[in-house]
Amino acid sequence: MSGDFINLLADLKEEEVLKLTKERLDAKEDPLKILDDAREGMSIVGKRFAGGEYFLPELVFSGELLAQVTNLVKPHLTGEGVQQKKIGKVIIATVAGDIHDIGLNIVDFMLDVNGFEVTNMGVDVPVEKIVKAVKEIKAPVLGLSGFLTPAFDAMKETVEALEKEGLRKGLKIMIGGGQMDDEVCKYAKADAYGKDAMAAVALTKKWYGVE
């Protein structure tokens, strides 16, 4: 049942996944096991996305399936679930003055299924809020997203504020989105530009020294 469930989710079979979830709950299966399987299914989705088999529609739809499964399972959960062991923390944010979040959320998803604990600060995040988060969360990796040209300066200002606060040393910063590229990376004094969510994962893994 578990193996079928994982593959059905990875293959995005909505009706079958929901039917099987209900059957497993009716059979009094451990709800945490169902959620674990769902995570495994999502991890396959992530791999297929990274491998070029899946694209944005599959990724977004898998998120919808996961939300539906989680909603079905939630009422059956007793007490706290066991937290999955994470490799480490990453903060991501779309910089001030920019409200685009599609890419940001894909990066969030891909980092999450690859074992990172992601703090997604959302869009139009002012410099001081990012500084505060870096200070408090103590994540060694920061991802800055931006779609439009004005994000060039917002990124630069964010990096400079982190420098000024003495937080830049030991912090790796990656940028991505819309019109960002290696030139903008140099301009903003970030550490790397990633062209897509897979690049964000590869950079984070490299900086964490895993794989």
Binding site: D98, I99, H100, L148, T149, P150
Partner: peptide
């Protein structure tokens, strides 16, 4: 839509579509 002073910072140099 969001534009400077209206959902975006006053000094924002763009207006943006809210999907």
């Amino acid at each position: 839509m969001k534009w400077p002073g209206h959902g975006l910072p006053d000094n924002a140099h763009s207006y943006q579509y809210v999907e």
